[in-house]
């Protein structure tokens, strides 16, 4: 599968989707001008990936900030992971947050409530 590598800016996150090396990661800030234009290619990639996924998919979420429009798209990513898990594949969503950032911690807990995906919360010092 093709590799998606996007370098982050002050309003878009850094993204790596690399099936061969088992790297699935989104990090940084997300408040793109057009959320759909930024996230739809990622959702499409995950859709294609789910046709022949790795035995185990570990997705790292290392976001420092995201706006509410992005929060909807992040849920769409998690729902793709949920489909994978429901189809019998092993999935782990690792949710990183700054240990002082209560809001980011809560955001992870809420996603874990909404979707049926194994979640791990990781505080960064």
């Amino acid at each position: 599968m093709e590799v998606i590598k996007i370098k982050g800016t002050d309003d878009t996150p850094t993204v790596t989707l690399d099936a061969a090396n088992g790297i699935f990661e989104i990090s940084g800030r997300s408040l793109p001008e057009d959320v759909a234009a930024f996230y739809n290619p990622l959702i499409d990639w995950l859709e294609a990936y789910s046709q022949s996924p790795n035995a185990k998919t570990i997705f790292d979420f290392k976001l420092a900030y995201f706006n509410t429009a992005s929060s909807k798209m992040i849920l769409d990513i998690l729902m793709k992971l949920e489909d994978l898990q429901n189809n019998g594949h092993e999935v782990l969503a690792k949710w990183y947050y700054d240990e002082d950032d209560e809001d980011m911690k809560e955001a992870g807990e809420e996603y874990a409530d909404i979707v049926d995906v194994t979640f791990e919360q990781i505080a960064i010092q």
Partner: peptide
């Protein structure tokens, strides 16, 4: 508010202007 947010993020659709209807709640 958490319940309303969860309901809206699950059921709401992104508008053609890219709004998720979550701004005020958040």
């Amino acid at each position: 508010l958490t319940e309303l947010y969860k309901k809206q993020i699950k059921e709401g659709r992104l508008s053609d202007k890219g709004g998720a209807g979550l701004g005020f709640i958040d």
